[in-house]
Design a protein around this nucleic acid. Structure first.
Lengths: 226, 226
DNA sequence: GACCGGACTTGACCCAGATCAATCACAAGA
DNA sequence: TCTTGTGATTGATCTGGGTCAAGTCCGGTC
């Protein structure tokens, strides 16, 4: 990322390597004081916020290599909770020390800006998903997102286990559990994938991609006027 | 913001003050090279991204005091377009120079992180809105958001003009134009507000707030299981 | 190996909000 | 003043996906 080995070492020095965490453990809870960012090394984590009605909104699932907690910098407090979905190894990055380091290493500061900016871009994609896509497109997009992110880490893009429940998937995608379940069945019947409980095999990535893109001919063109 | 007057002056030095822009002018377009952030001084701007189907998703409306373009840092390219909604004064902040300055002034760097983080937090709220709220709650939340943001800038929180069309509001909130229109009528009939074309008067802010919160008794409690 | 409980699936029904279809109203020209 | 075009409103209808209600399928546990 444009850092020399000395810089990498300095960054490495401030990372706290944590013991493995287990399903159900919290990295932090909503309204906790913000101290550190967290990086998933192995396993997976979900973040979620309470919604006024007493339920909760799943905000994201975090796979190896992904960073958690950027939204808490602003208020110096966590606005969501982070819960471990399966036995996972998580590193902790004390933010105060990271901030000192980024001020001293311009390329690291730039990386940090990029990371924050990327998070905004991902949220934007999610807004588009929730605002404009139907159930089928949402689930296809979700599966492809998992696939691509796993692949990026050298894992199989077409054969993996879901560490989250159908309920959590539905909550994340703004769908009812039943809808998620029906779509899994439909996708399987259509030969797009194979589903066995939490074991997922994507058989036709291209078809899934075309589902996500504009396959919904029955959707109104939401044009702008000037 | 924890900056001394000398720092403020240095920040002030790099700001380019632009001539007024007019309705329909672009600050930048999708896939433009990223060079600067923009701050709305007066007026309003909308940002929007193309959706695969050929339509577009309105990503946000930006009022005085608000920053535009943070999502472009990552890829060094704009992923959305920004269009001026009414005659507006916009300042330009060349990002490269801002980056130098933040590396030199720790408190400014911290502010910058906070700004980026806040943007993430706002997107998160929007995800909750689109994922969990019904049409009524969405529109009420939208009106209150405008109200609060205008108030923060010393403008009237209960009497203002909408610079965006019903269509754009609907697109932003994931609703059809007709739904937005019907809700305006309903809110007016219920004495919550007065609507005259683009002129809005909020008559009962408290009632609107209670609409946004969990007034929807007919919504499934989306609990998580562990 | 019978029992239990939570996750998932499947079917039947319903409704919020999308879509379709006219107007309506104002603003800008001619 | 009349015309025209572009939002905005209103009414009628349709439907995707939510809700309700049974099951079904493991994975534990004693």
């Amino acid at each position: 990322m444009g850092l020399n080995s000395e810089d990498v070492e300095r960054l490495d020095d401030i990372v706290k390597r944590a013991r493995p965490l287990h399903r159900g453990d919290f990295l932090f809870r909503e309204s906790d004081r913000f101290r550190s960012l967290f990086v998933v090394k192995t396993g997976s984590v979900k973040t979620f916020a309470p919604s006024p009605e007493g339920g909760e909104q799943v905000l994201g699932f975090h796979l190896p290599g992904e960073l958690i907690g950027l939204d808490a910098i602003d208020k110096d407090m966590h606005a969501c909770s982070a819960k471990v979905l399966e036995t996972s190894a998580i590193c902790e990055l004390p933010f105060a020390r990271l901030e000192e380091l980024t001020a001293a290493i311009p390329s690291l500061q730039h990386q940090m800006y990029r990371l924050l900016s990327k998070e905004i871009g991902q949220d934007t994609e999610m807004l588009l998903l929730l605002g404009k896509k139907n159930a089928e497109e949402r689930l296809a997009a979700f599966l492809l997102s998992l696939s691509q992110r796993l692949h990026k880490r050298g894992l199989s893009p077409s054969d993996f286990y879901l560490s989250m429940s159908r309920h959590e998937i539905g909550n994340y995608l703004g769908l009812a559990v039943e809808t998620v379940s029906r779509l899994f069945t439909r996708f399987q019947d259509d030969g797009l994938m194979r589903v066995d409980r939490k074991h997922i095999q994507l058989l036709d990535l291209l078809a899934l991609e075309s589902l996500v893109g504009g396959s919904s001919q029955n959707r109104r063109q939401q044009q702008q006027q000037t």
